[in-house]
Write a protein that binds this DNA or RNA. Sequence first.
DNA 1: TCAAACTGAGTTAGCGCTAACGTAACCAGC
DNA 2: GCTGGTTACGTTAGCGCTAACTCAGTTTGA
Lengths: 333, 333
Amino acid sequence: MIKRTTLADIAKAANVSMMTVSRAINNKPGLSDDLRQRILDLVDEMGYRPNTFARGLATQQTTTVGLVVPDNTNPFFAQIARGVEDAAFENLYSIFLVNTNEDAARETAALETLWQKGIDGVILCSSRQSEEALEYQVQRFPAIVLVNRELKEPHANLITINVNDQRSAQRVLQHFLDLDRKQIAYIGGPINSFSNQRRLEGYKTGLRFAEIPFDPQLVESTQPTTEGGREAAAVLLQRRPDVNAIFAYNDLVAVGAMQVCQEFGKKVPEDVAIIGVDDIPLATIIRPQLTTMHVALTNIGRLAMRALIDIITGEGGSAAFQIEPELFIRDSA
Amino acid sequence: MIKRTTLADIAKAANVSMMTVSRAINNKPGLSDDLRQRILDLVDEMGYRPNTFARGLATQQTTTVGLVVPDNTNPFFAQIARGVEDAAFENLYSIFLVNTNEDAARETAALETLWQKGIDGVILCSSRQSEEALEYQVQRFPAIVLVNRELKEPHANLITINVNDQRSAQRVLQHFLDLDRKQIAYIGGPINSFSNQRRLEGYKTGLRFAEIPFDPQLVESTQPTTEGGREAAAVLLQRRPDVNAIFAYNDLVAVGAMQVCQEFGKKVPEDVAIIGVDDIPLATIIRPQLTTMHVALTNIGRLAMRALIDIITGEGGSAAFQIEPELFIRDSA
DNA sequence: TCAAACTGAGTTAGCGCTAACGTAACCAGC
DNA sequence: GCTGGTTACGTTAGCGCTAACTCAGTTTGA
C-alpha cells in the first residue's frame, strides 16, 4: 500500500508552512497567486488528497451524511436512494447507507452508529421511531430530513418530505368514479404505517364525495409486497366477488392483486380496474401495464439531499414539503 | 444540538486519565475490574460514544468500507448491496454507497473520493476500469474485493468473486437440449461486459457439445434492461422466426424478450422457451414465471463483505471465489 | 532479603488538518 | 519620520482519540 502524501509533505517540498498549503488547497485568501499556483502544481504532481477524516476532526464537518431506509432492495427506496446519492455526488457529499429492515430497534442502533461517525446529517425514510424517540434524534443530529414521516413540532434543523397521500387517494377514487366503478376496494399496507392511514383517509373522503357509504368489508390490510397483495386480494374477492375496482397501497400490492384477479377469472381492467401508487419500474414491465399514482421518487431523493445540505449550510430548515403525485393512466384502469 | 460527551469529560468525571477510560471502553487489560466497571457505568450514564473519526485518525482504521456499484436501482446490485450491508452491520462496519452509472470516469472519481476518506477497503462491483487502472487501485487501497470482475495478477489484498458464467450458460443450453430445442438464440448484454463474454463462451461450448454449429445470426447484444431485451428480441425474431429457445443475458432482458415473443404471437414456453440469469424478484412476479439461473445475490454480498473484513484483519487475501448458479425451472422453459 | 517481574495506572506524543492569532515587510498619509 | 493599515505568510494550539513509553507500588522467587 502506497503511503499517503500529507499536508506536511507538500509543505516541506514547497518550503512553506502547512498553513500556507492548507490555504492554497482550500482556495482561501492570504497568499500570492504564483505561490498558490506553485503549491497547487506540487499537489497535483505529488498526488496529494486531503484526508477528509482529519479535516472533519478539525472542522467538525464531515461532508458525510447518513441514509437510513427500511430496505434498499425495495424499488421504492432504491429509487430514492439513487436520487440522494446523485445529489450527494454532485455536492461532494458521501453517504452512509443503512437498512433497518423495518425494525425500530435496528433503526435506533443504526442511528447510534451514524451519530458516532460524527456525520453532518441524516435522511431518514419511513421511520418507525416513536414521536419522542424522533424528537431526541432531531436534537442530537445537526440536520435531519424525514421522508415519508411527519413530526408534530417544527425544528430549525428538520425538514420533512411527504407524499400527499390523501389527495393521491382521492384522485384514484375520482378516476374509478369517472370509469363508473362503484364497488371500490382498498388494499392497504401495514396498519401502523402513516402513509397507509393517510391513504385510507383519502379513500374515505373520496367515497363521501361520491356519496358512497364506507364499507369496511371492502378494506384489507397486508404487507406491502406482491405476496401481500395476492393474499389480501384473494380474501377480498372471496368475500366480495362484486368488487370492480381496487386501489392498492403500492404497485407491488397492485401487481399481486392483479394476478389474483386474473386467476379468479376476472379480466383487468374490464372486470376489475386496478390502480397502484409509486410508479416503480415494474409498473410498465407488467402486462397489462399498471395505472398508478406516479411519484417522482428519484426527485424526492434529490430534494431530500439538497434540503439536508441547506440545513447544514444554514440556508434552510423547518420546512415541510408535500409531493403531489400524478395519475399515470395505463392499461389496468 | 447537544454537545458531544468526550473521553476527556469521562476522565474528569471519573477522576482518572483519558488513557484509563480508553482502556476501559476498548476492553483492554491494564486496570482493575471495579475501576473498569465504574468507568463503564459513567460512560453509560453520561451517554458517551467514541468519535469514530477521531479514533480512525489515531488508529488508521475506520471500520468503514466503500461499496461501488453501477446502479443501486438495478435489482441485481440492490440485492448484493443488501447482503453487503447486512454483513457490515453484523460486524459493526459502515458502508459508503456510490453509484458509477456504468461510467468509468465517474467510477474513478468515486474511488478517489473514497480513498480520501481513508476507508479500510472497497467492494467494487462490475468495474469498468482498465486492467492497469485496477492494478493501481489495488495498490492504494488496503483491501479490495472485486465482484463480477477478474484481475490477471493475484494480490495479497485482493479477493475476487465471480459467478461461473461459462458453466451457467452450458447448463442453460443443456436444459434447452433436454427440451429438444435446437434453434437457440443468445441475447447478450453489453459487448465489453466480462460476464457477457464468458456467457457467450459457455453458449458456444454448449452448442459444440451438442454438435450444433454456431450461428452468429442467433446472437444479439443489447443493454441489460427490459427495454434492451425487447429491442433485441424484436430484431432477432424478425431475422430468425424459427427460434424456439432464447437464453437471455439476465432476467430483465429475458422478461423483455418474453413480452415481445408474446406480442409476435408466440407462446412461451410452447413456441419459444426462455431462460434468464440472476433470479431477481421480478422472475417470480412475472407470468409465466421465469425459468432462470438462480444466483444467490445477497449471499454474494455477504461473502464479499466478509472477505473484505478477512483481508483487513489479515486473515485472508489473494483468493478467487467462483459462485455456482443453479437452474430454477419455472414456467418459461 | 533484595532484585526481578508484574500490575495498574499516568504521561507524552502524534494521527492530519484547520482556526485564530502573531509578525515581518511594505506602503500611504500627514 | 512615525503611525496605522495592509499583505503575505508563519506559529501555536487543539479537534478526540490511541500507541508507546514511563513509573510507582506490589508480588514473586531463590
